[in-house]
Design a protein around this nucleic acid. Sequence first.
DNA 1: CGCCACCTCCGGTAAACTACGTAGGGGCAA
DNA 2: TTGCCCCTACGTAGTTTACCGGAGGTGGCG
Lengths: 230, 230
Amino acid sequence: MLTQSNSASSSVGRKVASLPCAANDQFGILTGHAGLVATEFTYRKDEEIYGEDEQAEYVYQVIRGAVRTYKLLSDGRRQIGAFHLPGDVFGLESGATHRLAAEAILDTTLRLVKRKSLELSAQSDVRVARDLWSITSGELQHAENHMLLLGRKTAMERVATFLLEMDRRIAKTGMIALPMCRRDIGDYLGLTLETVSRALSELQQQGVLGLSGARQIVLRNRERLADLEA
Amino acid sequence: MLTQSNSASSSVGRKVASLPCAANDQFGILTGHAGLVATEFTYRKDEEIYGEDEQAEYVYQVIRGAVRTYKLLSDGRRQIGAFHLPGDVFGLESGATHRLAAEAILDTTLRLVKRKSLELSAQSDVRVARDLWSITSGELQHAENHMLLLGRKTAMERVATFLLEMDRRIAKTGMIALPMCRRDIGDYLGLTLETVSRALSELQQQGVLGLSGARQIVLRNRERLADLEA
DNA sequence: CGCCACCTCCGGTAAACTACGTAGGGGCAA
DNA sequence: TTGCCCCTACGTAGTTTACCGGAGGTGGCG
């Protein structure tokens, strides 16, 4: 059962053009335009948000929680393309369908906007069109970096890169609170969960990081980690 | 020494909106808009077109030849992100800089358009803005598929996928004429050139393909190849 | 003609990772 | 509390692939 609540474009007066306001710059795009109706929706842990090749009816923004987008091979092998954290927009497609599936990693609240209404808005407001392009371009940049990681980096380099990415994106008071399990990390980095676990243990033994619980990480030596990133 | 020639927006009368005319649909975007000045430029084999993190002054379209875009690690490991063939647009950035380097694979003629003039055109014509987004979105889709390949497919599956991609993109009269060497293929697929070579030999032995010269490939059993793709 | 780049084929070695197992501790939810 | 999932930590075996060197063939080119 899903909790649903309307919040029809609550903060209307917001400016759009390049606001480096809060933590996340993509925040204004789905809220800042009058005439756009946004709906909030809550998904439970491991619940599917949309499937691969499904019609792309909505564009999503994470309010609370975390989302993984992924592709599957016929025998179940999985590649996670990205993790989406509060503030991130995902599910935005230029074509008709979603090309990755999306699931909530934990209980997650999303803001939904009709894809059609966004496209319509983009036809009359070039700034919206520019924002849509920028979001897709940002995803492409991430994917390009990730191809380098998947194609050419060693297991330890991948884990170091992952830690620095998470540190940049979700570090609060020096602490990384991971929303995802080791299997998710492995499927993101093209490794097995065991390899991820081993790499983290070794980094802890070297004093590069501290673990307080499996999903609470403190980076103690970012320079060393940047070296390991290759 | 570079051959240069002006062809200032030669085919002006061309329509833009969704032309499924020739082999390649991206063809109209850099030529179809009056007011855009296009310059043709020829690069020699292995010549750099632009470097990683270089200012993105131009957007490019392949007229003849082929281009590889890639990222390097500090120790020389290379990941090729994409091959660009006649008709393809590349080097299009939403941000200020190129995030992969680009080189000509063989003697290659490109059409260049000033990035600024395209952006300007996009501000007055929403169709142009839409086209720019579509190009970037297409690149993202390719990158997403490639992440699955790099993260989760076996060597043979990668080679099979590569062959089917090339078959789709450059097959003339049932023949694939590869512009790139085995090392390029390896760096594209996250493999060594030896592994690529072995996989192709095995496919030849199985009768799945025929080699007439290393870069002339005939696919004899696409169904088998599609199975191998996983 | 030789030179050179590219490619294939042949080894052997080593690393990386997978694929099983088993076991135990901890957190969390019913 | 109990059960379940997640995580760590062993172990062993096996596969895949990388990496190294070298030999030989081929085709293009000067």
